[in-house]
Simulated scan of single mutants.
Amino acid sequence: MHLFSRAWSALRGAVAGLSDEDFARPSGCSGWLVRDLVCHLVIDAQDVLITLVTPAEAEPTRDAVTYWNVTRTPPTGEDPLDALTVRLAAAYEEPRLLKFHLDDVGSAAGRAAELADPALRVSTQDQVLTVADYLSAYVWEWTLHHLDLIAHLPGAEPPPADGLARSRAMLEEMAGAAFPAAWSDQDVLRVGTGRRAPTDAEKAELGPLAAEIPFVIG
């Protein structure tokens, strides 16, 4: 839960520091500008609020890692929900309105997470998790989207180091294999999830794992 708060606070802070011009830059998400990604974060924050007030009686069916579905097909940005996000982002017209909405809903989601009982079971997407596992799963979401946010913003502050390390560990658990130890956590996450293609040298270092990437997780 501590990592959730750190990762979410850092991501919201990165959005708050964007210039109006930054919102029109491409993000690390295929087919999305920075403004589209920020709009997606508003929706994510709403999902967190909804889930934390949706208690469940059943035994957990997922944990922080198995919450995510893993495929081999990178997103194209043409999925109907992805396209809807683009239209919603455009409707804000002014970046300051999008910033305000994220700060408003995002702050509420952060407070709700801090107040939640870690052992409480909650339901989302027809699955049951403990609050602790649900919030831990979102460390992945916040960290990857922080990298997406700054993908074309040289000099921007990266995600917290502990969030990067945790997300790398989650990716390696999902992959069932370890990435080269000498690689930075950022390189592991970007290459492992298909956010950038590995160089020839990196492919050689990956060995058999090179044929398995990308791990598209959502």
Rank of each mutant, 00 (worst) to 15 (best):
A201P: 10
L120F: 07
P180I: 04
F23H: 09
A64H: 11
P214K: 03
D133F: 01
L84R: 15
A132T: 02
L98Y: 09
E21F: 13
R121S: 04
A58L: 05
T73I: 08
S123A: 15
L115F: 09
R87A: 15
W140D: 12
G163D: 02
D103I: 04
S167E: 05
P26C: 06
H152A: 10
R25F: 15
L98R: 04
K99I: 00
A83P: 12
D126S: 10
L41E: 12
D200C: 10
A91I: 01
E205K: 10
E212C: 10
L147P: 06
E141L: 00
E59M: 05
L98Q: 02
L164G: 00
S184D: 13
P55W: 07
L189A: 09
G194E: 15
H152F: 13
E173D: 08
E57D: 08
L171T: 00
A7D: 00
A56Y: 04
Q186L: 09
E93T: 13
C29E: 13
Q125D: 12
D133E: 03
L37A: 12
V53R: 11
K203W: 08
T130G: 08
V15W: 02
T73G: 03
D44N: 12
D82S: 15
S19N: 11
E157I: 02
A137L: 02
R25H: 13
R35F: 03
L189N: 10
T193A: 15
K99M: 03
A119I: 01
R87H: 15
V122G: 09
L115A: 13
L18R: 07
V34H: 14
N69S: 13
H2Y: 03
R196M: 14
S5H: 07
V86S: 13
G106I: 04
E94D: 15
T71R: 06
R195N: 05
L84Y: 14
A16V: 06
E57M: 04
L81V: 09
V131N: 03
P180Q: 09
R196T: 14
A10S: 00
F4K: 00
S123P: 08
V188F: 08
I43P: 04
A175K: 03
D103V: 06
Q127M: 03
L149S: 11
P159F: 02
I213L: 12
M170E: 07
H2Q: 11
T199M: 11
D126P: 02
A45M: 08
Y134F: 06
M1D: 01
